[in-house]
Design a binder for these strands. Structure first.
Lengths: 147, 147
DNA sequence: TTCACTGCAAAGTCTTTGCACATAT
DNA sequence: ATATGTGCAAAGACTTTGCAGTGAA
């Protein structure tokens, strides 16, 4: 149903730019799709479930490539590694800085803000790159556990 | 005019918790205030203008401490190092992913969004921790320079 | 005097680079 | 056949940790 998920789609996109289709590239893209949003390390582990010899270097390089091709995107959710997700699935991340949980909400929530920023500051907001930090429902209702 | 900027304020805050006042701590806090938002490395260089022997390790430790004391905050603006700023100065960062420029806008812009997130998702948005990514006015009007 | 704090060096993450071999076309 | 892509190892950027000596109270 989704052309982008057909195996041949990636091959085509690559060939249009004189690039080569490899198992590693398909596996990395599949892993990103399956994991929703994940760090390079998590993606690498997922890929290694199928192909244990794939190196994390290749994962980094492939993620860069897929991002340049517009197939995936990354966001910096917090301290550590960035999180990659498929580009087609537009969403905004809600990151709880208490428990680390990540939720997703539709981008449309940002439309009013995007309009204001464009009109008043000339800034074109890219909602799909966005992480909003705060406290999630569970942590708000839970007693503050420590420091 | 601002009690927090009086030298004695930091000493008091520290003493209340059994911590000690040191020149390094005052210098780091001053540097964060002066620089607005800056990476640990930039803060370290600023401190070293005055006290060249201060080590970057101390800067990292002091920034952690000041953050725990609620005096500074950090945000992840992009790939590299985080950016620290004084907590009192609440603002939202607009990060241009084309040229890397960082602007600040008042947090109140996020009030409507914050209300929606709270009402519909139970998520308490922390606006002061926030970086919005997009394209700035200059880059929008400039011709796309390369790839 | 005492214990928090600092500087230095070393180790720890996360990511990139260089290079020879493998492989898609 | 050929040049892109990969794996491995080493280096790079950013940050943390261990420890002995320094200095605030």
């Amino acid at each position: 149903m989704d052309t982008a998920s057909a195996p041949k789609a990636l091959r085509k996109t690559l060939h249009e730019r004189g690039l080569r289709m490899t198992p590693q590239r398909q596996l990395v893209l599949d892993a990103v799709r399956e994991l929703g949003h994940a760090t390079p390390e998590q993606i690498c582990q997922r890929v290694q479930d199928t192909a244990p010899t794939v190196n994390i270097t290749t994962v980094y390089r492939t993620l860069d490539l897929l991002e340049r091709l517009g197939l995936v995107r990354h966001t910096h959710l917090g301290h550590g590694a960035p999180s990659y997700s498929v580009h087609a699935h537009e969403h905004v991340h809600l990151v709880c800085h208490r428990c680390g949980r990540v939720d997703e909400v539709p981008c449309e929530l940002l439309s009013p803000l995007g309009g204001t920023l464009r009109d008043e500051y000339g800034f074109e907001l890219d909602a799909s790159h966005l992480a909003l930090s705060g406290t999630c429902r569970e942590c708000l209702s839970a007693p503050k556990e420590s420091e």
